[in-house]
Design a protein around this nucleic acid. Structure first.
Length: 842
DNA sequence: CATCCATCCGGGGGG
DNA sequence: CGGATGGATG
C-alpha cells in the first residue's frame, strides 16, 4: 500500500512557484502567481479583507492550532483561506491535506470555496470530506486488515436494525422484550466511543438481553464480516484498529498528510478523536503536528449523539504548545442580538470563554423582542402576522426563519401558513434516501452490484408481492446459512429443487433469473438505463402506479429523481458508494418561502429575521435534557438557545406561551429560565396585540392566588411593583397578563412518563458566571421541585356533571373524570381533555 | 396477504 | 391526542 492511486499532483511538477508558467499576476488566476505575490511582500489578495485574528489563524500553519470561532466570525472563511494559503506557499500538494467536516454540506461548501480561491483544482483535494467518507476511503484501501473485502457495503440504520433483530431471534430471545432498535442504539453508542465487543463496560454488556449484550455485539460484528458489510460506526472504528495494529500503515498516512484541518471540533466524539489523534501524531516530518481544529465550545449541541465537548476544552493539553486563536469579531448580528447571546451563554460554566462583539452599532437596530402568547395557536397566528407585515415592507420570506426546539411545534405554524397562503419550507425532514421507495430501489441495485448483499435481497425479494411469504423467505435464508452461500444463490438453487411449493418456486426462479440477467447487463448497459430496466422489469414501478394512495405519485417522482441523480456518477457502483454516505434533499431556492426547522438543523445558517417560539420550561430547556443530563444537560440546552439567538442578523423575536398541548393534554407553562437570562438592556417586551386580550384580561387581572413562583425570583415577578429597576416595557399590560399567568403555573406542567414523579435537577444551584448584583436571577435556590404530580392517584375535586370554567375554553360541563384528567364539554369550544388544575368550579 | 385493532410513546438526527 | 408499530384476524 505504498502508493496511492489518486495521488494526482495538483501541480505539473514540484509545487514550487517556478514550476508553473507565469501568468498575469493581477488576474489572480494562478496559485503560483499568488504565491509569487506573497514572496514579494505584498499580501496575496486572498488574505486581504481578513481581520487580524483571522489572518493569524490562516498564517499560523505550523504546529497545533485551535481556532475558537464564535458564531458569525468567519470560520469557514478562515478554514478555506488557510488551505489556499498552504497551497499557495507550496507547502503541500492538495492531496497532502486532510480536511475533515461532519456533514456533506459543509464538505461541499468548503470544496467550492477553496475552488473559488485557488482555481478549478478542487478535484485535487481527495482528502477533503466528512469523517465517514474519508473513513470509507481508508477502509477500502486496507479492507483486508479488517477482515473485509474492499467492495464491502455500508449498511444504513434500517438494515442494521433488521440484522440485529435476526440475531436476537437466533439467540432465542424475545425480540419484543429486547428491541433491536434499542440494541442498535447501544452499539452506536459503543462505536462512538471506539469500543469493540471485548472493550465494552461489564455493566453495559449485562444491561441487554439477560447479560448477553457482549455476545450479541460480537455476533453482530461476525455477521457483518460474513456479509462483507459494515455500519457507519465501523467506518471509523475499523481504521482506528488498523492504525493501532499496523504501524506501517499509519506511517503511510503520517508521511502523506502534511496538514490536518478539522471543522466543528466541538462535535467530535471519542472515536473521531482517537482517529484524529492517531493521524495527527505526525504530519509530514517527525515531530511535526500541523493540526488545526476549528470550533466553538458554545455551539456544542450534539452531546446526545456522543459528542464530547471535552475534546475541544482539552485541546491544549492534547497538543502541548498549541496556539489558541479566538475569533470574536462578529460580522453577522446587531449589537443587541450579540449582547443578548453573550449574556445568555455566560451562564454556562464549562466553557473556554469568548465574547462576541461587533463594530457596527446602528441606532435604529431593534432590541431583541420577547413576546407572550396565550397558547401555541395564538403564537403561530401572531408570528404569521408579523411575517406578513415584514413581507409587505419588502422583506423576503427567504430571509426569515422559525427555529423550534422540537419538531412537533412545526405543525401549528404549517397549519397557519397554509391558511394564510404563506409559502414555507421545512428544512431537515425525512431525508431523501431514507424514504421507503428509495431504499427499495437501492436494495435492487445493491443486489445487482453485490450479489452477496443478503439484507438488500431480503428487503426486496417480495417487493412487489410475489407470493413469497415468511416461510419461503426463511427457507431461502436457512439454505443460504447452511451452505454458506448468498441468499440469491440459495434462491436460485431452491428454484431448481423441489423443496418448495410450485408457486413460491416459480416466483423464486423468476427473481433469480431477473437478477442474473441484470448482472450480466451491468457492464455493458449505461447504468441509468439499467436502473430503469430493473425497476420496470421487477414490477416495482408498476407497484406504485397501481397504488392509489395519496403518496404514490410522489414516490414515483422520487424514483425518477433517483435515476436522474445517478447520471452524475460513472457507474452503478460509484453511485451506490456515494448514496450510502451522501444524498440529501436540496431546498428549492427559487421559491420565496419562510424557513421552518429545528434549532439543531439551524446551526451554521443565518437569517435576517428569526423567530424562536416555545421558550417555556419543559420544552426549552427540554425536560428530558434536565432529567437525563442534569447540569450539563441544561448547559447544552443553553448552548442551543445561544445557537438560536446567534442565527439572527437583524431581528430576533422570542416567544413563549402560557398554555401548550403536550401529549394531547392542555398544560399550563411558565416562561423559560433562559428569558430571565437575557440582559434587559438588549431586550424589549413586546405588547402581544389585540388577540391576547381577547380572553378577558380582566378575569384574572386581580392577581389570582398570588402564589409565589416556586422556581425562585424572576425579573418577571416584580413587574409593576418595582418599576424603578426595570425598563418600563416590562410593565405593559400584556406582560403583566403573562406574568399573572406565570404565577398560576406551578406544579402540574410537563408530566413525566408513566405517572411517576420526577425530581427536577440541575436547576439553579448557583448562578455561576453571571455577574453578581444584576439582581434578577441571583436568588434561585434548589428546591427539588416535583415537576409532575402523579397523574392518576390524586382524586379530582370534580365529578361528572360539574359546571366549570376554563381560561381558554370558557364554561362547560365535566363529562368524564379520569384521575386528574377531565373531559369537558365546553359550551363554545366543544369537547376537550384538560387537567383539573386548569378549571375552576362555577 | 391485507386489514384491523391494541399498544406504546412522545427530543434533538449526521454519516 | 395522534402516529407508528406489531400482532391477531378474516
Amino acid at each position: 500500500m505504498s502508493d496511492f492511486p489518486d495521488d494526482m499532483p495538483f501541480f505539473d511538477e514540484a509545487p514550487s512557484p517556478r514550476a508553473t508558467p507565469a501568468r498575469a499576476p493581477a488576474q489572480g488566476g494562478g496559485i503560483a502567481a499568488r504565491a509569487m505575490a506573497a514572496r514579494q511582500g505584498s499580501a496575496p489578495d486572498y488574505l486581504k479583507g481578513l481581520n487580524e485574528e483571522q489572518r493569524l489563524a490562516v498564517e499560523t500553519i505550523d504546529g497545533p492550532v485551535l481556532v475558537l470561532a464564535g458564531a458569525g466570525t468567519g470560520k469557514t472563511r478562515v478554514l478555506t483561506t488557510r488551505i489556499a494559503h498552504i497551497l499557495s506557499l507550496g507547502r503541500a500538494f492538495p492531496s497532502q491535506i486532510l480536511a475533515v467536516t461532519f456533514t456533506n454540506k459543509a464538505a461541499r461548501e468548503m470544496k467550492q470555496r477553496v475552488g473559488l480561491l485557488v482555481g478549478e483544482a478542487v478535484e485535487g483535494m481527495p482528502w477533503l470530506g466528512t469523517f465517514h467518507s474519508i473513513g470509507v476511503k481508508m477502509l477500502r484501501r486496507h479492507a483486508e486488515l479488517a477482515g473485509l473485502r474492499s467492495d464491502f457495503t455500508i449498511l444504513d440504520t434500517d438494515d442494521v436494525i433488521r440484522l440485529i433483530k435476526q440475531l436476537i431471534q437466533a439467540e432465542g430471545l424475545d425480540d419484543k422484550r429486547w428491541p433491536a432498535r434499542q440494541f442498535a442504539m447501544m452499539i452506536d453508542g459503543w462505536k462512538n466511543k471506539g469500543l469493540g465487543p471485548s472493550e465494552i463496560p461489564e455493566g453495559d454488556a449485562r444491561a441487554f438481553a439477560n447479560g448477553k449484550g457482549r455476545q450479541l455485539y460480537q455476533a453482530y460484528q461476525d455477521r457483518l464480516k460474513t456479509l462483507n458489510a459494515c455500519d457507519f460506526g465501523d467506518l471509523l472504528c475499523h481504521p482506528i484498529r488498523i492504525f493501532r495494529g499496523n504501524p506501517d500503515v499509519l506511517k503511510e498516512y503520517h508521511k502523506r498528510f502534511k496538514y490536518i484541518l478539522v471543522d466543528e471540533y466541538q462535535d467530535t466524539n471519542t472515536a473521531q478523536y482517537m482517529w484524529l489523534r492517531l493521524l495527527a501524531q505526525e504530519t509530514g516530518a517527525p515531530g511535526q503536528k500541523n493540526v488545526c481544529c476549528v470550533g466553538d465550545d458554545d455551539q456544542s449541541i450534539y452531546g446526545w449523539r456522543g459528542a464530547e465537548v471535552d475534546n475541544i476544552l482539552r485541546f491544549d493539553k492534547d497538543f502541548p504548545g498549541a496556539v489558541v486563536i479566538r475569533l470574536e469579531r462578529n460580522y453577522r448580528s446587531t449589537a443587541h442580538i450579540l449582547g443578548a447571546a453573550s449574556h445568555l451563554i455566560a451562564h454556562n460554566e464549562g466553557r473556554l470563554g469568548k465574547t462576541l462583539f461587533t463594530e457596527k452599532v446602528e441606532d435604529d437596530d431593534s432590541r431583541v423582542n420577547v413576546h407572550a402568547a396565550w397558547d401555541s395557536e395564538e403564537e403561530a397566528r401572531a408570528v404569521g402576522e408579523e411575517i406578513e407585515t415584514a413581507q409587505r415592507k419588502g422583506h423576503k420570506l427567504n430571509d426569515m426563519a422559525i427555529l423550534v426546539r422540537a419538531s412537533f411545534q412545526m405543525r401549528e405554524f404549517e397549519d397557519r401558513f397554509v391558511t394564510l397562503g404563506l409559502n414555507y419550507r421545512v428544512i431537515g425532514g425525512p431525508r431523501f434516501y431514507e424514504r421507503q421507495e428509495i431504499r427499495d430501489a437501492m436494495a435492487y441495485f445493491r443486489v445487482v452490484a453485490q450479489p452477496a448483499d443478503d439484507l438488500a435481497f431480503e428487503r426486496i425479494v417480495n417487493v412487489p408481492k410475489r407470493g413469497l411469504g415468511e416461510a419461503a423467505v426463511r427457507q431461502v435464508h436457512d439454505t443460504a446459512r447452511a451452505l454458506r452461500i448468498p441468499m440469491l444463490e440459495a434462491a436460485s438453487n431452491l428454484a431448481e429443487s423441489d423443496e418448495l411449493k410450485p408457486k413460491p418456486r416459480a416466483a423464486l426462479r423468476e427473481v433469480a433469473a431477473n437478477f442474473e440477467r441484470w448482472q450480466k447487463a451491468l457492464d455493458n448497459t449505461p447504468h441509468t438505463e439499467l436502473a430503469e430496466t430493473i425497476l420496470e422489469e421487477s414490477g416495482y414501478t408498476d407497484m406504485w402506479k397501481n397504488d392509489r394512495s395519496a403518496e404514490a405519485p410522489g414516490r414515483l417522482e422520487n424514483l425518477k429523481e433517483l435515476i436522474r441523480s445517478m447520471e452524475e456518477y460513472e457507474s452503478l457502483r460509484s453511485f451506490l458508494e456515494h448514496v450510502a454516505l451522501v444524498m440529501d434533499s436540496e431546498k428549492n431556492e427559487d421559491l420565496d418561502a419562510v424557513n421552518i426547522m429545528t434549532l439543531h438543523s439551524a446551526k451554521g445558517l443565518e437569517f435576517e429575521t428569526v423567530f424562536l417560539p416555545g421558550w417555556e420550561e419543559g420544552l426549552f430547556p427540554h425536560q428530558r435534557s434536565l432529567d437525563e443530563g442534569g447540569r450539563s444537560g441544561l448547559e447544552e440546552e443553553r448552548r442551543l438557545a445561544y445557537v438560536g439567538v446567534t442565527r439572527a442578523k437583524k431581528n430576533l423575536h422570542i416567544w413563549f406561551v402560557s398554555n401548550r398541548r403536550i401529549h394531547g393534554l392542555w398544560q399550563s407553562t411558565i416562561p423559560s429560565r433562559f428569558l430571565d437570562e437575557l440582559p434587559e438592556a438588549h431586550v424589549e417586551v413586546a405588547e402581544a396585540g389585540n388577540s391576547y386580550g381577547g380572553y378577558g384580561g380582566g378575569s384574572f387581572a386581580g392577581g389570582r392566588g398570588g402564589r409565589q413562583n416556586p422556581y425562585g425570583a424572576s425579573r418577571f415577578d416584580n413587574v409593576g411593583q418595582d418599576s424603578g429597576s426595570f425598563s418600563n416595557t416590562y410593565a405593559t399590560p400584556g406582560w403583566q397578563r403573562a406574568q399573572a399567568n406565570r404565577n398560576e403555573a406551578t406544579d402540574r406542567n410537563w408530566g413525566s412518563r408513566s405517572g411517576h414523579a420526577v425530581e427536577r435537577i440541575g436547576y439553579g444551584e448557583t448562578d455561576s458566571g453571571y455577574g453578581a448584583g444584576r439582581g434578577s436571577v441571583k436568588s434561585r435556590t434548589i428546591e427539588g421541585e416535583l415537576v409532575a404530580k402523579s397523574v392518576s392517584d390524586t382524586p379530582s375535586p370534580f365529578k361528572v356533571g360539574d359546571r366549570v370554567f376554563h381560561q381558554k375554553f370558557g364554561n362547560g360541563n365535566v363529562s368524564v373524570v379520569d384521575g386528574n384528567k377531565l373531559t369537558i364539554d365546553f359550551d363554545k369550544a366543544g369537547q376537550k381533555r384538560v387537567l383539573d388544575g386548569f378549571v375552576t368550579g362555577i
